[in-house]
Amino acid sequence: MTWVNAIVQGLLLGGVYALFACGLSLVFGVLRIVNLAHGDLTVLAAFLAVVATGTLGVNPLVSLVVVVPVMALLGFVLQRALLHRSLQGGELAPLLVTFGLSIVLQNALLQTFSADTRSLPAGEFGTASLQLGDGLAVGWLALSTLVVAVAVLAGLQVVLARTPIGRAMRATSDDPETAALMGLDDRRVYAIATAIALATVALAGVFYGMRGTFTPTLGPQLLIFAFEAVIIGGLGSLWGTLLGGLVLGVAQAVGAQIQPSYGVLAGHLVFLVVLAARPSGLLRRKELR
């Protein structure tokens, strides 16, 4: 039963990773930028929720009403102010800029909020669980995180496939110059994509903060998990990203079941095995590309 439990908890954990990963996947798919500050932005969202819950005295879930729009706006500004300029500087510039941003965010958070471990108190909702049988309980919070992750991925999929702005994103990703000939402003399309990505980052940060603890220096670790989910699932496939997140979650949970310190390592090893055996990922479709 402990193993079944580990797998179930792993799947639920995978929901968080999928949520982390879809923003990374979207920014790469549309802008062709790997945002190395992705993890630190997630942590920033969690700290914004700390401030919002502290000053407004509301539940972290309610704080999403503030945190999601703020992060989306930040994404829009970030794209306009930094990322767009870096796109003109060849392949290296976006990486250097986002890595610089990662260092700035991480250390600014460290100075502002100290290195203390934090969490977002989710109240009863955070501790209540659904009894599924002998020694197998599923937390409502964990379950709803997975549901939110699936809903966000499905929503993104619909936006990309069916809506005019999704069409504009795919066209701009294919060929920005020709897209401009069609009247599409690539700056605006990119900024909207980044805004959407950071809105999902906000969700991921807050749900992660409610599920466990975080510190200002957690960002790089989250970036790595998001990245592993994307690569395991297959670049450019949103459903692959979900699968990748679930595989990573299960690997970590099963590894930790063997010995607690093996959890993260097991996730890395599964990633490396996938990279060696199936470098294009478990699922590879051309949805984003």
């Binding site: 930094l82 870096s86 500087g89 510039a93 250097l96 610089g100 260092i103 700035v104 250390n107």
Partner: peptide, 9 residues
């Protein structure tokens, strides 16, 4: 970090 961003841009 800020100087590195500025230099890269």
């Amino acid at each position: 970090g800020a100087v590195a961003i500025a230099a890269a841009l």
